[in-house]
Amino acid sequence: MQQEVLSKQLDFAALLHDVSNIFKGTSLVLNQIIDGAYGHSLEEIRPFLIKLQEMNERGKSLADRKTIFLEHNSMAAVQFDMFDFLQRNYFQYQAIAQCHSLNLHYQTQALYKHGTQVRADSISIERMLCNLVTNAIKYTKKGDIFLRLLNQEDDLVIEIEDTGCGIAAEQLSNIFIPFWRSPQSRLSDKPGRGMGLYIAWMVAYAHGLSMRVDSVATQGTKFTIIFPCKDDGIYGIDDRMLPKSPKQVGSRRSEVGSFDIKKV
């Protein structure tokens, strides 16, 4: 009973975290529009208004969900094109990155071995992506952020890489713990609840995905999410979701600061 209560509390805290992030993002872009950063005519600011509308719809979809993402419900899985999905999200986060004087790049391949069709809970995948990209923006003072869609042998891979502050090797095993924040981030001017990476990890686990973290302190961080190729040529989950109570399985490489999260 106590474990069930704790799980529901974490679910609710995760939901508040993600909805709050959406409000912060829309507020940031709105203030830029008011200041004239994107122009003054309706035609000039229309693309950014469309992005704001899409962000608002994402927040609405979270609030309207009948189940919370930590409940492994295969009925929520749909088939969609990851190439288009990432491109749409890229255009939304590009404006936020621009507000922080950062460059956000979307890099793709000319051809994909098995296409880019994915079977997954798209709302949860969007939450995972949102937390990884916004974290990259938050902890990068200057430079570039890269969102990539690649093939790794037969699998489909998403990479989010930044040129930010990085993560110390001895702290990597803690970054997916809910409410945990590194000593450096607690001393910085970047507010946070320590929930973003926990949410990303839980979404990856729920979909049977592998997540890898490569980081070098003061140089940057790269998250890699691997969608395994299935027999039917569609990446992502099978007809079932994985059981609850995930476990962390990791291997660290001290020279580069790597940490792997794999399904168990």
Rank of each mutant, 00 (worst) to 15 (best):
F227L: 12
T140K: 02
V213C: 13
I158S: 01
I226L: 07
K113H: 15
D155T: 09
N73W: 06
S245Q: 11
E170M: 00
R119V: 01
A120G: 07
E255Q: 08
G25P: 02
G192V: 08
G194L: 02
T163N: 06
A77Y: 04
D35C: 09
D155I: 06
N56V: 03
V118Y: 01
E4L: 10
I160H: 00
Y90W: 15
D238P: 02
L6G: 04
H207Y: 09
I145Q: 11
L197N: 00
N89H: 10
D35A: 14
S7G: 11
A97Y: 08
D154E: 12
G236V: 04
F83N: 09
G164H: 02
Q109L: 12
F83G: 06
V157C: 11
F179L: 07
F259M: 07
L147N: 04
G115K: 00
L187W: 00
Q3P: 06
A204W: 00
H40T: 15
K141G: 14
K113N: 12
H207N: 15
L111K: 14
H114C: 03
P246W: 08
L104Q: 08
D239V: 02
A110K: 12
Q3E: 14
L16N: 05
S188Q: 03
E255W: 13
N73F: 12
L28H: 04
L209E: 01
S122K: 08
F80C: 03
T116E: 08
M241Y: 08
K244I: 11
W201V: 00
S254C: 01
Q152Y: 14
T140C: 05
Q152E: 15
G39S: 10
A76H: 06
Q3W: 02
G257L: 07
R252S: 12
Q53N: 08
V133K: 00
G192N: 01
D260P: 04
G164R: 01
E4T: 12
L15W: 03
Q3V: 06
K8Y: 11
A95W: 07
G192H: 05
A63E: 13
E153V: 10
Q184E: 15
V216Y: 01
M1F: 13
A63I: 09
N21K: 10
M55I: 01
Y205V: 08
